[in-house]
Amino acid sequence: MSAETAAAPSIAAVSVPAAVSRPRRWLVVARHTALLLARDPGTMLAYTVMAMVLLTMLRPVYVRLGAAGGGAPIDRQAPGTAVMFTLLALDVAGQSLLSERTWHTWDRLRAGSVGRLTVLVGKAIPLTVLFAVQQVVLFVFADAAFGFDIAAGSWRLPLTVALWGLCVSGLGLAVGAWTRTQGQLSAAADVGALAVTCLSGSLVPLAILPHWVSQVAPWTPAYWALRGFQGAVEGGGSDFLEALGVLAGITVLALAAASLRPMPGRGRC
């Protein structure tokens, strides 16, 4: 060893590393993803503020429509707005995965024995929390400003918030896995989110939309999220459980779609 090398700081000798448990890897990826999300909060802040502004501006419209929909207008408007803006934030989840490729870190993760499942689970955890916080902020605002009854949702509302957050995370990760460029991601996420919002009745109640929209609505995840929120506020029942079941199914399908996509490059191992 040369004198220069000998003068270097003492670093323990090379060793065969001990196996790292999968849950520990999930936590490491989750903590790191949370850190990266916290470094760039602009998009989520914008979508949250925009949701509160839209809720306020469209309030008179919903009041006038209130009689047609049944129940308190805010009980329809607040969940609809939450569903819409959580969907619009879907590209945050997609970007989280796409960045791993644009930063070339995806290959490093794979070479470091971090499997696709670990990456997806590790990213889904903080993303779900982020989307849940977004919804909670909006519901608290709706409660304080317009009388949305959070308490009526009991345990059902947090459960729906969490499941919808996980569902959007899965959808976003799937979009991130199946797109290759920022342009593709933005187009897919924005157009998709807007289309789903309109077709699900999240923005405008289905009761005043053309009949065909009511027939298409059940094919959108947002429709089931909306039913879940309404069921939670109205006291649960079979409709509520059905909505949660469908959301859970969509989440599993979305995560499966994200995990099955071969990553662009020169092959998959």
Binding site: V16, W103, H104, T105, D107, R108, A111, G112
Partner: peptide
């Protein structure tokens, strides 16, 4: 893979 440290040609770090 746990035995290997791989440094690709391109920089593969989290810039933010």
């Amino acid at each position: 893979r746990a035995l290997i440290g791989y440094a690709p040609q391109e920089i593969a770090l989290y810039p933010t």
